[in-house]
Write a protein that binds this DNA or RNA. Structure first.
Lengths: 342, 342
DNA sequence: ATGAAAGCGCTAACAT
DNA sequence: ATGTTAGCGCTTTCAT
C-alpha cells in the first residue's frame, strides 16, 4: 500500500499521485475518470489507485481546463417560500440527471443582492441561469449583457427577450374571483405585493374578472411582507367600517401577505369566513390547517421547474431560436375560508 | 474604444485582454484586482480597461491558482424547514462579511444525498463545512477523512470529534413537559422523528421531565414526515380510546410532525386543546395561526448560524485546539394549544 | 512599482 | 490503447 494513504491533512491527492500509484500516465487516469477508451486491466489498476489515494478530482481545475462549468445558476426571490423550494427541487433533479450542479441564491427581493448574484454567476461561468427577478432588475436585464442564457420563472419578461415560464396569473386571479362570486360574495377587496410583476398580472386578472361580474374593484399594494399586509388590512378595514363599506371578501396575491391578513383577522376579532372571506395563492401545507382551511390557487410547482430546465437546455442547443414563454395554469383549491355568505 | 467591447456572446474578456487594453502587464491587472501595490495612474487605467472590456474574473482559475476556494459548504437536512433557512441566512451573512461564498445543499435526511454532497464538498475544495447530518452519516463521519474542518449544527457528535452548536434539547423538551404539567396535563404522549439525534435527545429530556413529575412516559418514533405522523397519531389514538387510556396532551419533536398531528386532530374531530393539548418545536410563522395558536419551543436560529461560523473560523485559525460544543437554550412560547385542562 | 515567467490540476491534442 | 505535452486564466515568485 502506498504511503499516500497516510497523507491525511497534508494535501489532497492529485491526478499525478493516482497515475504514479497505478503506474500509468495522467492521461490514462483522466480517461478512466471520464469513461474514455482504456483497457480493462489498466482501468482496474487506476480504480484501485483512486481508492488507495482517496483521490477526488479538483473541480476548479477541471472547469478551467474543460471550459464548461457544468453548473447552472438559480436565483430566487425568497427561499422560504415553498413555491421556490419546490421549484428548486425540480431544477436540481433535472440538473443532476444531466450531470450538472446548481448554485442556489436567495435575494429576498433585494435588487442589490440580485446584482451581486448576477455578477457571481458570471464569475462562476455558469452554463445558464434560471431567475425570478424583481421588477426593478427585470427592467434592466436586457442591458446586462450576460454570457449565458437566462430563463425567467414566476416573473415574465414584457419584451420577450428571454425565455420564461409563468403561471397564468390573470386566469388564476379570475379563478379566485369567480369562486368568490359563486359563493355569493360581492364586495371583494384585493391586496397585492408591490415589487413583482406577478402581483401586477394578478391584479389585472382580479380587475377584469370583477368587471365581468359587474363588480367594483378595490385594490391596494403593499411591500411583500406579512407585517405590511397585516398593518394595511387593519387600517383598511377600520376605514371601511367607518365609511360603512366593509368588504365581505379579500383576495391576496401571495402567501406571505395571506399570513398577514389572517393575523389581522385574529387581532381584529373577525371570523373567517363569517366576517370576511379570504382567498390567496400557493397551496402551502399550513393553509389547510388555518381556521376552516384557506382557499388558494395551487401552482404546478414541479412542472414549472422542469419546464424552466427544458427551456434552458433547448436554448443551449439552439441559441438562435425564438424566445418562448410557457404559461401554465393553476387550480383553485376551495376550502372553508370562502364557505359562502352566511 | 476597444473592439473587445463588441465581443458579445463570443467569449468573456480575460485578464490578458484587460492588460492589453490598459497597456500594462497581467501582473499589474492582478494587483489592481487584489488591491496590491500599484501607482494611482496605472490603477486608474486598469480600472477603465476593466469597465471597457466588461471583465469578470474567472473564479475557477483564481481558485485553482491561489489554492483556496474562499467557499464554505452548508449541508442541511431540510431546506423547507424555517429553522434551516434562518440558519443558512446567518451563515451566508457571516461568510459574506468574511469575503466568502456558501454552497448550500439539501439532503432531505437522505444518507445517499449526504454522501454525494460530502463528495462534492471535497471536489470543490471548500474551506470548511457546516453540516446537519442524519444519525446514520454521523456514525461514519470520523472515518470519512475530509480535508477540511466540519462544524455540526442541530445534531451533535457523541464522541466530540467535531465542533458543534446545538440546542439544549433535553432542557427544551423538559420546558415543554413542565409547561404541560403546570397546565394540568398528566397523560402526556410523545411523538419523535426516527432519523436524527435531535429527536433522541428530546426524547431523553421528555422522559426525564416526566419521571421528575412522577408521570408515565409513552413515546413513539416515526419517519420525519407529516404523513407518517398523521397516520401514527390516528392509529395511536384509536388504540388508546379502545383501551380507555387516552392521552390528554402530546408533545412532538419537530414542526413537520407537528403539522401531521394537527391534521390528524382535524380528521378525527378532536378539539385543541379540549380533547388533546399539543406542543412542539420551532416557532414557525404558521404555528401562531393554527387553531388557538400552537405552543412551541423557539430556537435562537440566527445565533446558531453565527455560532457555527465563529467555531469554523476559530478552527481554521487553530486546527489543533480542542473541539467545542456550543449549547444554546430555547424558550417556550406558550399559546392556546396548551390552554389547560377543561 | 512593474514585468516576465512559472505553474495550480486538470483535459485534449497529438504522437506513438 | 497509451503516453507526452500544451495550455485553460489566473496568482505569485523572482527580477528589474
Amino acid at each position: 500500500m502506498s504511503d499516500s494513504v497516510k497523507a491525511i491533512g497534508i494535501k489532497p491527492a492529485g491526478i499525478k499521485d493516482v497515475a504514479r500509484e497505478a503506474g500509468v500516465s495522467v492521461a490514462t487516469v483522466s480517461r478512466v475518470l471520464s469513461n474514455g477508451p482504456v483497457s480493462d486491466a489498466l482501468r482496474a489498476r487506476v480504480e484501485d489507485a483512486v481508492r488507495a489515494t482517496g483521490y477526488r478530482p479538483n473541480l476548479s481545475a477541471r472547469r478551467l481546463r474543460s471550459q464548461h462549468s457544468l453548473t447552472i445558476g438559480l436565483i430566487v426571490s425568497d427561499i422560504r417560500n415553498p413555491f421556490f423550494t419546490a421549484v428548486s427541487r425540480a431544477v436540481e433533479d433535472a440538473a443532476f440527471q444531466a450531470g450538472m450542479r446548481v448554485i442556489l441564491c436567495n435575494t429576498d427581493e433585494n435588487p442589490e443582492r440580485e446584482a451581486m448574484y448576477l455578477r457571481l454567476m458570471q464569475e462562476e461561468r455558469v452554463t445558464g441561469l434560471i431567475f425570478a427577478p424583481t421588477r426593478a432588475t427585470l427592467a434592466q436585464l436586457d442591458r446586462a449583457d450576460l454570457d449565458f442564457p437566462v430563463v425567467l420563472i414566476d416573473r415574465s419578461a414584457p419584451a420577450g427577450r428571454f425565455d420564461s415560464v409563468v403561471l397564468d396569473n390573470p386566469q388564476a386571479a379570475a379563478l379566485l374571483v369567480d369562486h368568490l362570486h359563486a359563493q355569493g360574495y360581492r364586495r371583494i377587496a384585493g391586496l397585492f405585493g408591490n415589487t413583482s410583476t406577478t402581483a401586477v398580472e394578478r391584479h389585472a386578472g382580479y380587475q377584469a374578472a370583477l368587471a365581468a361580474h359587474g363588480l367594483h374593484a378595490e385594490a391596494r399594494f403593499v411591500p411583500p411582507t406579512a407585517e405590511a399586509a397585516e398593518a394595511e388590512i387593519a387600517r383598511w378595514l377600520a376605514e371601511a367600517r367607518r365609511s360603512g363599506a366593509m368588504p365581505d371578501a379579500v383576495m391576496v396575491s401571495n402567501s406571505l401577505l395571506l399570513m398577514g391578513v389572517v393575523k389581522a383577522t385574529r387581532t381584529l376579532g373577525l371570523a373567517i369566513p363569517g366576517d370576511l372571506a379570504v382567498a390567496g395563492f400557493d397551496n402551502e401545507p399550513w393553509t389547510e390547517l388555518v381556521g376552516p382551511g384557506l382557499t388558494v390557487i395551487e401552482q404546478p410547482v414541479h412542472e414549472i421547474g422542469r419546464a424552466a430546465m427544458t427551456l434552458l437546455f433547448e436554448r443551449l442547443d439552439d441559441p438562435e431560436r425564438a424566445t418562448r414563454k410557457v404559461v401554465l395554469s393553476g387550480t383553485c383549491v376551495a376550502r372553508g375560508s370562502t364557505g359562502g355568505v352566511g
